[in-house]
Amino acid sequence: MKKMIIVLTTVAIISGTTLAIAYSAFLPLIQHNQQVALERSLGALFEQGESPEFSEIETEGPTIYRARVEGQVIGYAVRVVTTGYGGEIRLLVGIGPNLERITGMEVVEHVETPGLGGKIDEPSFKEQFEGLQPQQDIAYVKGGDTQAKENSIEAISGATISTDAVVSGINKTLDSALPALTDRAGEGEE
């Protein structure tokens, strides 16, 4: 009885110590990787020659980053978290400085089925969001004619759930992000 307790406790202590050491050894690298992934996605949102600097804006709603080049605000990046077919999808939407157009969409993290919903991370899908109106809900059409609906993208065939998750996630997040941004939109032009 006593031996059981001693052995289990010792094993647990050694294991805990090992993990604490391993965790603190790898943590800087892991955080660095996450930061790199986030910055890469943020940078891809805007078509500026120089890479903009990003700073987080405090809001009660979604996380928003302000993008600046030499002090001039060139746009905003809004973080969107939505639930797709395989689990959480995290993405970023870039909006122009006057909230007049969407400048880009980047998927940061997703677990959608490769070859189907996984196509949300392909350029052909992401580029469709460029130039859409952020003020108005985005729609999606199946099988082709995006002229049929205003402010729409073409859904990925066979992956309506993933498409819908992305589109409705963006719509919902922008609904709460835009009012928070409207007050600040002019700040860059000072």
């Binding site: 289990l8 094993v11 647990a12 294991s15 090992t18 993990l19 391993a22 790898f26 690298l29 892991i30």
Partner: peptide, 18 residues
Amino acid sequence: AVIIATFVTIADLILKAF
């Protein structure tokens, strides 16, 4: 189980880091 879990967590951390 504790020993296995320890190495699994280390493997997970290594994958995340590298």
